[in-house]
Amino acid sequence: MLHYFFKIYLKLTGWKATGPVPKDLKKFIMVVGPHTSSSDVFMGFAFRSVLKLKHIKFIAKQELFKPPFGFLFRQAGGVPVDRFNKNNFVDQVAEMFIQNESFAIALSPEGTRKKVDRLRTGFYHIAKKANVPIVMLAFDFEHKEFRFAPLFFTTDDEAADYNKILTFFTSVKGKNPELGLEHLLN
């Protein structure tokens, strides 16, 4: 039922997907940005449903998965992490990739909807540690596109990798462009 709602919504509002959609890729980290609005979450669920990418999960603090509403987060594709575990976040998620034959997660490189001074680095270190590719997805509100970049693996040149990531995300406008990432690209 939700699938049809999302399909109609995206068609009526004129959104489309461009670039290489990772339909057959079993393991990857999807980096989604620029994250400038709470509506990005709705758009993420819509695109995931319409493009039939239900295997892509999201990470959230384990406290959200407790009764009475925890089942909703699991049903929506959430995977709990223990923020207070002696193993850090990167190790916990990298281990999920290692333990599962098929595992894909979506994360925002900003970690918030506010304007940031730098990108978070967890997604990058997870990809490196688990040896999985990064798939970048931009929500381009100006052109109404879910824009996919070709996948890439982290290299030994972290600065060049981050420059590649920033260059991709600064080429689009989020819902609130003033909260974008242009100021981070030097």
Rank of each mutant, 00 (worst) to 15 (best):
M1Q: 09
H3L: 08
Y4I: 12
F5R: 12
K11V: 00
K11Y: 01
G14R: 13
A17M: 05
P22H: 06
L25F: 00
F28M: 00
I29R: 05
V32Y: 01
H35W: 00
T36I: 00
T36E: 02
S37Q: 04
S37A: 14
S38H: 15
F42S: 05
G44I: 02
F47N: 07
F47T: 14
R48V: 08
L53E: 02
K54D: 14
K57S: 12
I59R: 08
A60E: 13
E63W: 02
L64D: 09
G70W: 04
F71G: 07
D82M: 01
N85V: 05
K86Y: 14
F89Y: 14
D91I: 06
Q92N: 11
F97K: 13
E101T: 10
I105F: 03
A106T: 14
V116E: 05
T121K: 14
G122Y: 06
H125D: 03
I126D: 01
K129C: 08
K129T: 13
A130G: 11
V132C: 11
P133A: 03
I134D: 02
E145C: 04
F146Q: 04
P150T: 09
T155H: 09
D156V: 03
D157E: 15
E158P: 07
E158C: 05
Y162N: 15
N163Y: 11
K164L: 12
I165D: 06
L166N: 08
F168M: 02
S171Y: 03
V172T: 15
K173H: 06
